[in-house]
Design a binder for these strands. Structure first.
Lengths: 222, 222, 222, 222
DNA sequence: TATGAATGAGCGTTCATTCAT
DNA sequence: CATGAATGAACGCTCATTCAT
């Protein structure tokens, strides 16, 4: 058996080209946005040619749509690997919160690419056939934790998982997205791990205080 | 009598040109970002010429720095007009929160220009001599409300005005900044006023629950 | 029984591909010229692939040569179906004239493809082995009519069928070829059927006046 | 007085650039058509830069419109220099006919550029504000000759100057425009001066026979 | 016989910027 | 104080064509 044979079948080489163009696109669009990221820089980074972008994706915009889909796919995939202990709803919600806050920190490309898409008023995500499938898993994570806590009488029933999801996202996303202006504004290096974990702890606390019933003391979980 | 100084003396005409270029820059950079907004589009919108941008601002980047300074100046100016009734700390914090959430909704240019600056890793704001002065007023608003509540024993003393400021900003900013992807993601039109005011109410509630002492019931303020 | 030979045996399917590529080439070259008509547009229109053009015709130029040959072939074939009543030379010449004038109107692809070839200084037609055979039939039509009239003493003997052929072609071809600039120039819609038939009548008259002996009155044939 | 001083005032240098770009455009579009003629070839030929085409003409199409206008302007200017002896209508019509036939021979750029415009269905001439002024002078030349002959009873009154103008144009234009395919078709080198003057003589004869009254013998004018 | 993948040159156009007065 | 002219690099994209099975 020869697994390392030089054979590079047609299909898999094509897959390679497509995949490496997509990977390069994520990097370049992440660094420079849709406008600032040039197709030739992407092609060069992928060790391919401009032409192949048009071959596989039709246009720069087509590549951007594929990029959006890919980062959402990775986001959902990461979320699907998070395990919640629903017997301990407070822990579960902590886990979910920490996952999101860290995901945005660890995936700046997710943040910058979405910012680019929003600058363009979301016109590409509307074109994606996959767009509608994106949201369910991520919100589901928050929903399961929240629902478990509500079932146990720990969490308020008048808060929606949608609001809590947006709250967590906002606090995690904004900290990453605006880190440079915010660091200048606050005169603190937000990227500093110590500051980050302080912030993370604050987010967890804020989320829990928002959902816990008045009768439950947060202190007991800390 | 001075016949050569008419209705528009030389100096103020220059001021006009400079001011209208700056105004146009805000609009264009807001719509298209630093990369996507072209010098000539700005000049055309200001009914001036490309060359004048170099005359007044030295370069495109110089113009962007001026743009950043201007939107921060407007932000601080708006904040300075907010009046807080510090006798009622909960109301004061509500007022501050509502101000910020609505400011981001009503000033998309503030949001998109800051996003652009963050995409460029904050390299322009560092160049501005004014940068350090920007933060104090805005945080001050939150600080005064929070301090008043703490002095009255209503608010926790273990929360910092910095964290609360970032929390409020995050929830207001993210809702505006990511409205297009979020609307697609949640399958809801976030720009819809009804949804906006629901969100605003939720933000107020989350902030108050985060700062109020356990012994204080939020209910009494609603 | 031969199970592998179905309704479309290999060879004829190949013929189909070749023929539909050629047909598509006529359409595309006709619309956009040699330079403007792209290989991939032709392939797409033929529901085939770029690669097949190289397979069957060697190059884009090879395909253009085949296109030229095909439109000349169709031209000659149409001419060969025209029947002249040589007993009535004036009628015969009318019939021939009308045939040519209408052929150019009804076959704009003939006109535009020849224009393209002339733009390229006739370099493709020289390559075709068939080129020399093209002319005889078409001129023959005029020749037979003219000769019949000369034999009967109706037509001048000092006019050549070559000149008359070119005269008829010029007047029919130019009207079609330059219809857009001419319509703008004359401020009349030349494509209008009424104007076309007036022009056709004028061409017939001009041709007859050019060939008829002075002693013969044209009036008697009208 | 120093007429040759090295002074190159702003305006006239600009005029030079614009004019040489236009001149180069005529050459290149004439050789290769609108599609085949590249802006960079034009810029190089004019010893200028691509960018200046956009500076002065806005786009390649804008340059093509200017090119059309320029060749029509030259055509009309040439026509305006033709002097007709209206006392001798037959001579006058001969002179006009010869002018047109030779103009097309001597200005192949007029022919190829118009062909290009017709390939594009006349969409540029429609955009030209000057288009409507183009036709009058050229037709006027034929009209004056024809009218003089009609007034003298030499020419038929049932022929229109429009038809005669188109007839002359067709015969002169087609001979030039289709010279390459026609030379191959007829197996004669149409560019040969001898053949050209034979053709010119035939055109004159055909035109005169078309317009002369039956009672007038052409022979007396030859 | 037929096809997916790849290629490099060139296209029309726009960019931020500088020159010369 | 203001302007028209010029510049060269880069942009997104399409071209005809060839490679490798």
């Amino acid at each position: 058996m020869n697994l390392t044979s030089g054979r590079t079948p047609r299909q898999s080489r094509a897959q390679d080209t497509r995949a490496s163009l997509l990977q390069a696109a994520i990097e370049v669009f992440s660094e420079s946005g849709l406008n600032g990221g040039s197709v030739s820089r992407i092609a060069k980074l992928a060790e391919s040619h401009d032409r192949m972008i048009y071959y596989y994706f039709g246009s720069k915009e087509g590549l951007f749509v594929a990029t959006l889909e890919e980062i959402y796919r990775q986001y959902n995939e990461a979320e699907s690997r998070v395990e919640l202990n629903l017997e301990q709803p407070v822990d579960a919600l902590k886990t979910a919160t920490v996952f999101f806050v860290r995901y945005f920190r660890d995936h700046p490309e997710f943040v910058t690419v979405l910012n680019s898409e929003n600058l363009h008023k979301g016109k590409h995500i509307g074109r994606s056939l996959l767009a509608s499938q994106f949201s369910k898993p991520a919100i589901g994570l928050v929903h399961r934790a929240l629902h478990a806590g509500q079932a146990k009488g720990l969490f308020r029933v008048d808060v929606s998982s949608r609001d809590i999801y947006v709250m967590i996202s906002a606090m995690g996303y904004f900290y990453q997205s605006n880190q440079y202006t915010l660091s200048a504004f606050l005169d603190e290096p937000l990227r500093d791990p110590k500051l980050f974990y302080q912030w993370e702890a604050f987010v967890v606390k804020a989320v829990l205080r928002t959902v816990l019933n008045d009768s439950v003391k947060l202190g007991q979980f800390e």
